[in-house]
Every structure is written in structure tokens, then in C-alpha cells.
């Protein structure tokens, strides 16, 4: 037993170190984002604490030799692309997972064909698509060639999430609805979908996040109008500035805000259901 406690303490200590390792660069990034600007570079020491780079990101800073990040356009493109990808891949994933609820010939083939989409490295897929479009004279755009590849990448994730959800879904509930005379389409809308909605939501979250941060596929197929990750990748070639870090901190905070809203909404809907039920109970009593 003592030995066990020792192991537990050791592992807890290790896990703390591990988290420090994960968060280390993040903390450094946050510190450097307050570097003095525009002369201060993305390194220590901090010349002087300032919020210059935040103003720079948001477009309030006076013009300087550091080009502003293309926040407006690139960010809008990225968000639009992520949203479209999310919708399409969730729909595809749900349809395919629905088909997998019954046994059919060739299910193994379809399963691996879909999962292949997340297994093939982005750079290969980007290259393949670039070759296809250059040979067939298809224009490369973030909303066409890049978009279809984003779906190829996120659809398998949505599919796997939905497959796991359906595995736990009690089929007799749908059968009960059919037996009541309700056709399958209506049953799906009224019964199945509301029940699997939390799963759909997490599939959507997955797809959105992956697409928003995607860049190897977009790099070759996105065309001239860049998305946010491509814009950041572009700065690799030239000098990087702390404005990138300020941007990183801002997006992280934004994501946190979204996550909080999501959490609050979820717990609120749970609470509402509970209140409704107990309220009714009091009526009866």
C-alpha cells in the first residue's frame, strides 16, 4: 500500500512537470506579447512592458515597418471556411454513420476509405489536389479546392464521433416510433436527431477546430487569397514579430470565451429540463 502511495505521488509530480512542459511555450508567448514595440523582437529580454503589439494586431497602432496581420480578410475567410467545413462534414459523417447501423457488404472498405481521409498527411493530399487542379485547369481557391480537402480531413472525425454515438443508441426507440405509424424520415427528425444532438455538437466542434487550424492542405490548394494559418505561415519566411504572439493570446482567449458559452448553454439546458420536470411534479402533488 505504501509502495502504491509513493508511486501515486511520483506520478502526480511527473504529471505536473508534464503540464508545465505543455504550457511552457504558451506562457513565454504570453510574456513576449507584451514586448515593447515596434523595435522589440520576439525574444528576451523584455525591453519594456507594453501593449503595443495588441494595438498592432487590432489595427490601432501607428503604421510602422512591421506589416499588419491580415486579420480582417484572412480571419473572415478562415471562419467561413471552418463553418462550411463543419456543416458539410457533420452532415456527411452523420449520414455515413447512420448507414453503418445496419450490416452491409463492403462496410470494411467504406470504413477504411473514410478513415483514410484523416490518415493521409495533409501535404500529400494538398499536393495531389494541386496536381489535379493544375492538370485539369481548375482554379485553386480557398472556397473550392481547399474546402473539399478540409472536408476530406474533418469528415472522418465527424464520422467516428457519430459512429460511437450511434453504437450507444437504443434502436428499439426508433422502432417504437415506426410502429406508431411515423415514417423513418420524420422519426429521424423528431426522435433520433434530438437524442443524438449532443454528439452532433461535439462532432461539429471537432470539425470546426480542425478546419480552422488546418494549413498543409490549404497551402497548396488555397490559391491567392490566404486563410489565417497560411498568413501566419507566410511570416516564417521573413522576420517574425511579437504581434503573432499577441494574436495567439487573443485567439486563445476568444476560444476560451466560446468554450465557456458552450459550457454555460449546455448546463443551462440540462437545468431547464430538470426544472420543467420537477415543476410538473409539484403540480401533480
Amino acid at each position: 500500500m505504501n509502495q502504491n502511495t509513493a508511486i501515486r505521488t511520483l506520478l502526480a509530480f511527473y504529471t505536473a512537470l508534464f503540464l508545465a512542459f505543455l504550457y511552457g511555450p504558451f506562457v513565454v508567448m504570453a510574456i513576449i506579447s507584451f514586448q515593447q514595440g515596434p523595435e522589440g523582437g520576439p525574444q528576451f529580454p523584455i525591453i519594456e512592458w507594453s501593449t503595443f503589439w495588441y494595438q498592432h494586431v487590432l489595427g490601432f497602432a501607428p503604421p510602422s515597418r512591421v506589416a499588419p496581420l491580415p486579420i480582417g480578410e484572412a480571419l473572415t475567410r478562415s471562419l467561413t471556411l471552418a463553418f462550411a467545413t463543419m456543416v458539410v462534414s457533420t452532415v456527411l459523417g452523420t449520414l455515413t454513420a447512420q448507414a453503418f447501423r445496419t450490416q452491409f457488404k463492403g462496410s470494411g472498405f467504406v470504413f477504411y476509405l473514410v478513415v483514410l481521409g484523416m490518415m493521409v498527411p495533409g501535404v500529400l493530399l494538398g499536393l495531389g489536389m494541386a496536381l489535379v487542379s493544375s492538370q485539369f485547369g481548375i482554379d485553386r481557391n480557398w472556397w473550392s479546392t481547399a474546402f473539399v480537402l478540409h472536408v476530406v480531413y474533418t469528415y472522418p472525425f465527424a464520422f467516428l464521433v457519430m459512429l460511437a454515438i450511434f453504437n450507444r443508441f437504443d434502436k428499439s426507440i426508433e422502432e417504437a416510433a415506426w410502429a406508431l405509424g411515423v415514417p423513418p424520415g420524420r422519426t429521424f427528425r423528431k426522435i433520433t436527431f434530438p437524442m443524438i444532438f449532443p454528439g452532433v455538437l461535439s462532432a461539429m466542434l471537432f470539425a470546426f477546430t480542425l478546419s480552422y487550424d488546418e494549413f498543409p492542405r490549404t497551402l497548396f490548394t488555397g490559391g491567392r487569397e490566404v486563410t489565417m494559418p497560411i498568413a501566419i505561415y507566410g511570416t516564417f519566411a521573413v522576420e517574425i514579430h511579437p504581434n503573432l504572439f499577441a494574436f495567439g493570446v487573443l485567439t486563445t482567449l476568444f476560444s476560451f470565451a466560446l468554450l465557456t458559452v458552450y459550457g454555460v448553454l449546455m448546463s443551462a439546458s440540462v437545468r431547464r429540463a430538470r426544472v420543467r420536470a420537477t415543476g410538473m411534479q409539484e403540480d401533480v402533488a
Binding site: V28, P42, D213, P229, L244, F245, G248, T251
Partner: peptide, 19 residues
């Protein structure tokens, strides 16, 4: 939740000679 590329770049001030 932070962009992959920014996370990679954050290693520079971490590992550099004056990192």
C-alpha cells in the same frame, strides 16, 4: 486552442541563446 503555427513559433523565444 492556440494556432498550431503560433505554438511552434513560441518555441523560438523558449530555446534561443537568450531564450
Amino acid at each position: 486552442w492556440t494556432s498550431f503555427l503560433i505554438r511552434v513559433l513560441a518555441w523560438r523565444p523558449m530555446l534561443g541563446k537568450e531564450g
